[in-house]
């Protein structure tokens, strides 16, 4: 019985959250429009958390994703102000993300600095660069091409409800593609299996002949690009960019991966589980707002729910879910 609770407690908890809101908000919660709204609201977090899963599979993590998202947004916006085309500016931003990610990989994997320390340092560096690039300003209005802001407001129409078009948001589609890509990489390629092997036992993976240093280095490219993409999605959604706007994504993304880990059999990070974790966080925000729960109380509740879910799961497999997190890199 206890084992059943531990194995499926997380899943049951998530379903309970959905049922709770469905009962309390019978007319508005389980509607296509609301669920599509939620999917759009969590799209940026989904991208960051999905790519975060790639490094967490190895027992690493990346604290710099939030400030990288901010940096990528202001880089694109500043390029817009200088007359760059949208594709060119986006390409540069994503390249900045790739470079930042590879740099993280380099310091973690080749130099061997603990991910916590290394990415804490790059978090600060990226944030500083974001302020330098933008002069600390918010870039908005005519400086941002209309098509860039319109992207996050649009999407294919998939129906009509109450005489209002039902739109499948573009941002949701982008997030879905990223989740699919990460799923293929992690679950369908030998590259992904090797990352899991490193997470299982780094020393054994090395002795088995895996190029651990190179694999860890390359995996950080995912978080860098994912963060940069999320930053662009954020900038599109608010049709503006400022040097701190993506910062909050980092902690929530890590929380989402941990929440997802409570769903998997052996506490391994899996991208679809991460997606479930993100969805629960998004649903909590959405449902509690609709129930008029004070925003500060909402934060406390969400934190408590994360603790409860992860705690429940940790009871079942003490030490496993947290493996490697604070272990020395090498």
């Amino acid at each position: 019985m206890m084992r059943l609770v531990r194995r499926f407690g997380g899943l049951a908890g998530m379903l309970a959250v959905v049922v709770f809101f469905a009962v309390n908000l019978p007319d508005t919660f389980l509607t296509a429009r609301n669920l599509l709204n939620v999917s759009q609201q969590i799209s940026m977090l989904t991208v960051v958390a999905a790519t975060m899963t790639v490094v967490m599979v190895m027992g690493d993590f990346d604290l710099s994703v939030g400030t990288m998202a901010s940096l990528s947004g202001v880089v694109a916006a500043v390029l817009f102000t200088q007359g760059w085309s949208i594709p060119a500016a986006l390409a540069v931003s994503l390249a900045v993300g790739l470079a930042g990610g590879l740099f993280n990989g380099l310091v973690v994997s080749v130099i061997g600095i603990l991910p916590f320390v290394a990415t804490l340092a790059t978090l600060t560096i990226f944030s500083g660069l974001a302020f330098m690039v933008s002069d600390g300003r918010t870039i908005f209005g005519r400086d941002i091409p209309a098509a860039f802001g319109d992207f996050a407001r649009g999407g294919p129409v998939i129906g009509t409800v109450d005489d209002r078009a039902l739109v499948l948001p573009n941002l949701t589609l982008v997030a879905a593609v990223v989740v699919l890509l990460v799923w293929v990489v992690l679950e369908q390629t030998s590259y992904g299996r090797r990352l899991y092997a490193i997470g299982g036992n780094r020393e054994a993976a090395r002795l088995a002949g895996l190029p651990v240093v190179g694999l860890r280095l390359s995996a950080f490219a995912f978080t860098g690009i994912g963060a940069a993409l999320a930053g662009l999605m954020y900038a599109s959604r608010v049709a503006s960019a400022n040097p701190t706007q993506g910062d909050g994504l980092m902690l929530t993304a890590i929380a989402a991966v941990f929440l997802g880990m409570t769903l998997t059999r052996d506490g391994q990070p899996k991208v679809l589980a991460t997606l479930a974790g993100v969805a629960v966080l998004g649903i909590l925000d959405n449902g509690l707002t609709q129930m008029r729960v004070d925003s500060y109380v909402r934060e406390v509740l969400i934190g408590a729910i994360i603790l409860f879910a992860v705690g429940l799961s940790a009871l079942g497999r003490k030490g496993v879910a947290w493996r490697g997190l604070f272990r020395r890199g090498g």
Binding site: L25, R33, N37, R292, S295
Partner: peptide
């Protein structure tokens, strides 16, 4: 219903969507 998104402007959009749905 007073909602503070703690500096997050995109969350303002999300919360507008939520309260409109509500």
């Amino acid at each position: 219903n007073v909602i503070d998104t703690a500096g997050d402007v995109a969350a303002v959009i999300s919360r507008i969507e939520d309260v409109v749905t509500q």
